[in-house]
């Protein structure tokens, strides 16, 4: 009944995908549908071939039934990602990418790879970016101290990945910093 053990310390990637699926994407519908009220808002009307904005979960659902084409988000193309990758390898900080770019790109490439011009190139770029960023977050561990750590431009999936280690490491550092103080306080 209570939350299962493995989920207690952190959130899982499929759950992050669920969160990211609330974001809006543009689609070109292939079927018509009246404007319909959903709990998160009203979407539609779908009038092929006019573009329409719907949540990602709806777009995936429609796409799997071959009822729409998904228009890739502006950042999900080879030129943009190539630029980010160059930034990633030349600069020290993380490049600016959408907070949930990993989840969204995975969902889109899984269900709608035929809507992209060069899905394989995109996949390999995303993988390169991920690896470059992963290396940086590992280096980030050295900056960890007991008070606060800024993580500019880190995305949701990366935070989730480093969470167990960073949280524990910071807990240990905090303890180490505190204990000598407590000891000093006891001595006159």
């Amino acid at each position: 009944m209570a939350l299962p053990g493995p989920l207690r310390t952190t959130i899982t990637p499929p759950e992050l995908e669920l969160v990211a699926s609330e974001q809006l994407v543009e689609i070109i519908p292939l079927v018509a549908m009246e404007r319909t009220a959903f709990i998160s808002g009203a979407y539609g009307p779908l009038r092929p071939p006019l573009k329409c904005k719907v949540p990602l979960w709806m777009a995936t659902n429609l796409k799997m039934k071959k009822k729409c084409h998904i228009i890739p988000p502006v950042w999900l193309n080879t030129d943009y990602l190539q630029d980010r990758f160059n930034e990633e390898t030349t600069k020290e900080e993380f490049s600016r990418l959408p907070f949930r770019f990993m989840e969204i790109s995975k969902v889109l490439l899984d269900v709608a790879s035929d809507d992209f011009q060069n899905p394989d190139k995109l996949r390999s770029l995303l993988k390169d970016i991920r690896e470059a960023r992963q290396a940086k977050s590992r280096e980030g561990i050295s900056k960890l101290d007991h008070s606060a750590l800024d993580l500019p431009n880190l995305c949701a999936m990366e935070i989730n990945e480093i969470r167990p280690f960073f949280v524990r490491a910071m807990g240990v550092i905090t303890q180490l910093v505190r204990e000598p103080e407590a000891g000093q306080a006891m001595e006159p």
Partner: peptide, 28 residues
């Protein structure tokens, strides 16, 4: 049926629903 019944949904909405909007750089 479903559509005009939901006054709240319709009122709140301004064309595209209100999911987590994503700017060009993905800042919410």
């Amino acid at each position: 049926e479903i559509q005009d019944d939901f006054d709240i949904g319709a009122e709140r909405d301004d064309g595209g629903g209100r999911g987590f909007n994503l700017g060009i750089l993905g800042e919410e």
